[in-house]
Amino acid sequence: MSHAFYVTASYIAAFAVTFGLVGWVFIDHRNRHRELERLEAAGIRRRSARAEESR
């Protein structure tokens, strides 16, 4: 195999893992955000949020 193969494979692996981490962070944030919205829609709120609302 040529040197180009090893260089290309290394950069593909580095990009794949990096994009995997970036994807994990953003997908996780979207899911957590939606979950919080669902709970708030069901009337389940943090005490501090309820206090802010009553002010």
């Binding site: 962070v25 944030h29 955000h33 389940i44 943090r46």
Partner: peptide, 17 residues
Amino acid sequence: ILAMRNEILRRRIAVLR
């Protein structure tokens, strides 16, 4: 810092549940 933000939200969800 983005992963920390997610973890804080995850803990808030657990407390709310």
